[in-house]
Amino acid sequence: MTDTTTAISMFERIGGRATIDALVDRFYDRMDTLPEAKIIRAMHADDLGPIRDVLKRYLTEWTGGPRLYTPEKGHPRLRQRHFGFSIGDAERDAWMLCMRGAMEQTITDAVARQDLDKALSSLADWMRNLP
């Protein structure tokens, strides 16, 4: 028996575009309302609409879906794009708190959710730019 999860993209495993859209919406809803997320909410504009769209396009592509981000924005260069923000453990943890809650609300496949959590945790760790 072969492991079919390696042949299927994360995008497909979690439910495609509808799930990415719901995930990002729940993520920013949590960021906008959780007191624990205040530290990262302050890094964003009052209107979260434009950044929601950017994250939806980025995560769609990052998880193996259609190329929606790079044709418009170019290479993600995530750390470079975030250097203007102080990102340490507290910011990473707040971001992951919002993302984990959003994943719980939107991704029904527990194994896919765990795999995505692992990948996003690594990404969040890499984004830190404070000692």
Rank of each mutant, 00 (worst) to 15 (best):
A45V: 00
F11K: 05
D25A: 06
T5Y: 00
P71N: 07
A94L: 01
R13L: 12
R100N: 14
G16C: 03
E12R: 12
I20G: 05
M10H: 12
E72C: 04
A22I: 06
G65N: 06
L78F: 04
A7T: 15
D53R: 14
T4P: 14
T70N: 08
W62H: 04
A7I: 09
R41I: 02
D46N: 12
K56M: 09
I40W: 00
P76N: 02
I8A: 07
R26L: 11
R100W: 09
W95S: 12
M31D: 05
V111E: 15
T108R: 12
R52M: 09
G101Y: 03
G65H: 07
P76G: 05
R52N: 07
I51L: 15
D3H: 10
A102D: 02
L59D: 00
Y58E: 04
R17Y: 07
A42H: 09
C98R: 03
L23D: 02
I40N: 07
T19C: 02
H75P: 13
T19G: 00
R77E: 14
I20T: 09
D109E: 10
R26D: 10
E104C: 09
E72P: 01
G101R: 04
E91I: 10
M10T: 15
I87R: 00
F85W: 08
D47E: 13
L48A: 10
Q105E: 15
F83M: 15
T6N: 03
T70D: 09
I40G: 11
A110M: 06
P50V: 12
P66W: 01
D32S: 10
R13Q: 15
R77I: 11
R81H: 06
D32T: 02
D32A: 11
H75Q: 15
G101W: 00
A90K: 12
L68E: 15
I51E: 13
R67E: 12
G84D: 08
E72S: 10
G16S: 06
S86W: 02
L48W: 02
V24T: 08
G101D: 04
D47F: 13
L78V: 14
V54N: 11
T19M: 03
M43R: 13
W95I: 13
R100E: 14
I39N: 15
I8Y: 04
K73P: 06
A42W: 05
A94V: 02
D53Q: 14
T70S: 15
Q80K: 13
M43Q: 14
P71V: 09
G65D: 03
I107N: 00
M96W: 03
S9Q: 04
Y58C: 11
A45K: 11
D109R: 04
L68P: 00
I40K: 03
A102N: 06
P76C: 05
T33C: 09
R26Y: 09
R26N: 12
L59A: 01
R100G: 10
R17D: 10
G65A: 07
D3S: 08
G88N: 01
Y69S: 05
Y69K: 00
C98K: 03
T63M: 10
H44K: 04
L48D: 08
G88Y: 01
T5I: 04
L23P: 08
I20K: 09
D25S: 02
